[in-house]
Design a protein around this nucleic acid. Structure first.
Length: 281
DNA sequence: ATGGCCGTCTGTGACGGA
């Protein structure tokens, strides 16, 4: 099973690149963040035409998360078929979306669209977009911490239910200093504080989860986000803030985990690159 | 590293992103 997470920074602006990703990698599951569209703007028809069912949590110009699941070839909708128009849309062999949950219980700002769950092939898959936090003295920062605490509670509940978990998304935390191009630049900023890192660790502990990229590549410095400005991508100045956390029970199936930097290049790229995780079937 | 960018909206610049 190939799982991809990608902060697309507007799904409408990025749709050609998303379709390119689906065609190139044919992932089984895609977790998207920052879709930035109203519910009625979500491009269900184009995604269905590419052979994917979708569930989404859309709230207008900010945030927004989605899950795409590859349909079986025989289950592809015929020409003119209604692709469906909501989180209940489903398709796939073992790739159906079941028991979709929209939103995170206890999240501080309910009207933001930052958390979406579904069961795919016996795995509880979550696409999340954690608040940025802006700055340490901003009211957004305690909201970020509260969101992370709510996520830990929810993950603990899901673990107790017994199904393996894949929590994927833009966590907006660099887990270690090796996940930053220069720790000094971020010394007084968000994304690196003990408050954030300890809450990320609490999520991992609550779920029995591990960071798939770091598990597979214990020492490598590689990034998933680069500022659009100042040529940072071409200078190699980025952060690793997009993560896939998997249940320890899935770790023996972890074949590979990598970042496709090609999608940070080319026409109209997102400022994030997709992170790919392959699990043996 | 001071900063350079890109996306949204009913906009003609402000704001958010990290």
């Amino acid at each position: 099973m190939l799982v991809v997470t990608w902060n697309v920074n507007s799904l409408r602006a990025r749709l050609p690149r998303v379709l390119e990703l689906l065609a190139r990698h044919r992932p089984d599951v895609v977790c998207l963040q920052e879709t930035k569209c109203r519910h009625d703007q979500f491009p269900l028809a184009e995604i269905a035409a590419a052979g994917y069912a979708a569930a989404h949590h859309s709230a207008g110009p900010w945030a927004g998360v989605a899950l795409l699941v590859r349909a079986a070839p025989s289950a592809a909708p015929p020409d003119g078929a209604d692709p469906g128009d909501g989180p209940s849309a489903a398709a796939g062999p073992d790739g159906s979306l079941h028991d979709t949950v929209v939103g995170l219980s206890g999240e501080p700002v309910v009207e933001e669209a930052r958390w979406l769950e579904a069961t795919v092939a016996g795995v509880r898959v979550i696409s999340t977009y954690v608040p940025n936090g802006r700055s340490l003295d901003s009211p957004e920062f305690p909201r970020k911490l509260a969101f992370l605490e709510a996520a830990a509670r929810r993950i603990g509940t899901l673990r107790a239910a017994g199904m393996p978990i894949i929590l994927a998304g833009d966590l907006n935390i660099a887990p270690q200093d090796r996940d930053l191009y220069d720790p000094a630049v971020f010394a007084d900023g968000t994304h690196v504080t003990n408050e954030e890192r300890s809450r990320l660790a609490a999520i991992e502990k609550a779920g029995g989860l591990l960071d798939a990229y770091r598990h597979r590549h214990p020492e490598t410095q590689q990034f998933t986000w680069w500022d659009y400005r100042a040529g940072h991508f071409h200078k190699g100045l980025g952060l690793r803030i997009d993560l896939v956390l998997i249940s320890a029970s899935l770790a023996p199936r972890l074949r590979e985990c990598g970042i496709d930097r090609d999608f940070r290049k080319g026409p109209r790229p997102s400022d994030h690159a997709p992170l790919l995780v392959r699990l043996d079937d």
